[in-house]
Every structure is written in structure tokens, then in C-alpha cells.
């Protein structure tokens, strides 16, 4: 925001700038509220994401059992069993959280794991699918945290810019115009005084 020229240092400009300052302060307050809400939301999601390490451990344990099954059944048998299972299908939906697009993965069709006739592989596949579902849920939460963090960074930048740049500039402009108006008012007052003195002298008062 540039400094107004002398010509624009009017009461109208001052009122307009004061309105602008009020609006910017209100906007900043709203953005700060949004920022706090985003931080709360991110913290809430982070608590849920913390479960990822537990999931990783579960995956590691399952992986070693799967390696055993792979070894006993062999890759050909495993691919044969997997042929009987229909693939799962997903849909990515977006919900809006304070204007931020949050992905939500919807499982449209679960794989029909009951078609695996080998009981050991069926149990393993079911456990793996349950873990996959949890991973998908955590994955979408991680995406949500990422999107919310981007929004948070953006809001921080805007709030900082308002706080450190725009508001001080508006305040400076208002102060400048106020001073200018005071100067103008004072010079008007002095001019009127001088004119009155002159008129009094002419009239011989």
C-alpha cells in the first residue's frame, strides 16, 4: 500500500482508510481463529496418525508369516489362489474442512477373500486386508494433515503479512493523513484568524 499523495489527504480518505484498517483487523482475527482451529484439527489427526508405527509393527509381523506361506505354497500356488479373488475397488471423495479439500477413500467393493480355499492363506489374506484398510484410513488422514498444513502455512503467511506489513502501513497512512488534516485545519484556522484581524483593522475596530 503506497502512501497517499497530499491531494488524497482528505477526511474521506481517512474514513476509508480507517474502515479498511478495521476490516483488515477483523480479517486477521478471523484468520487467526481459522489458524487455531486448523492447528487443533492437525493435532487431533496427528494423534490418530501416531498409530502408524503400530501398523508398521503389525505389517512386519504379518510379513514374516507371509514369507512362510510364500515358501510353503510357492509363488505359482499363491498366484493361483489370488486369481479366484476379485480386486477391490475404491473411490476418492473430497470433503471440505474449513475450506480445505480433505481426501476420503471409500472402499466400494471389498475383495472376496472367502474364495481362497487354502485356510492358511485365507487367514493371512484377511489379516492383510484388515491392515490395508487401516493403512488406507491412516493414509487419507496423512493426506488431510498435509493439506491442512499447506493451508496453515498459507494462513500464517497471510496473517504475518497483515500483522507485519499491511496493518502497520495502514496505521502509518492514517497517522499521516490525520497529521496532514490537523496541519490543514490549523492553517485554515490561522488563515481565518488573520482574515478576521484584517477585517477588524479595516473596519477600525
Amino acid at each position: 500500500m503506497s502512501l497517499p499523495s497530499q491531494a488524497s489527504a482528505t477526511l474521506g480518505t481517512l474514513l476509508r482508510l480507517r474502515e479498511q484498517l478495521q476490516l483488515v483487523r477483523r480479517g486477521k482475527e478471523i484468520l487467526e481463529m481459522k489458524r487455531d482451529q486448523l492447528i487443533r484439527e492437525i493435532y487431533r489427526l496427528l494423534d490418530e496418525i501416531k498409530r502408524r508405527s503400530e501398523l508398521d509393527e503389525e505389517f512386519t509381523a504379518l510379513y514374516s508369516r507371509m514369507k512362510e506361506a510364500y515358501m510353503v505354497r510357492g509363488p505359482d500356488e499363491i498366484s493361483s489362489y489370488s486369481r479366484a479373488v476379485s480386486k477391490p475397488s475404491f473411490r476418492v471423495l473430497y470433503e471440505s474442512l474449513m475450506g480445505v479439500r480433505i481426501p476420503h477413500i471409500d472402499i466400494l467393493k471389498e475383495p472376496d477373500l472367502d474364495k481362497i480355499t487354502d485356510p492358511a492363506l485365507r487367514e493371512l489374506a484377511k489379516e492383510l486386508w484388515e491392515l490395508m484398510k487401516k493403512t488406507i484410513a491412516i493414509g487419507s488422514k496423512e493426506m488431510a494433515v498435509e493439506n491442512l498444513s499447506h493451508e496453515l502455512a498459507y494462513i500464517n503467511r497471510v496473517v504475518n503479512s497483515l500483522e507485519k506489513n499491511i496493518i502497520p502501513q495502514l496505521q502509518e497512512n492514517i497517522r499521516y493523513i490525520e497529521v496532514r488534516i490537523q496541519e490543514i485545519t490549523l492553517s485554515e484556522f490561522v488563515r481565518i484568524k488573520k482574515i478576521r484581524d484584517l477585517l477588524h483593522k479595516r473596519r477600525g475596530i
Partner: peptide, 18 residues
């Protein structure tokens, strides 16, 4: 035959080489 039945039940393809 088990391989064939599994593939047909899941709507997948299977070749004679397998």
C-alpha cells in the same frame, strides 16, 4: 483343474503354460 476353477471363479485369465 483347481487352478482353472479358481481363475474362472474370479473372472481372471489363465494360460495353458501355467
Amino acid at each position: 483343474i483347481k487352478h482353472v476353477l479358481r481363475a474362472k471363479a474370479g473372472g481372471s485369465s489363465i494360460s495353458v503354460h501355467e
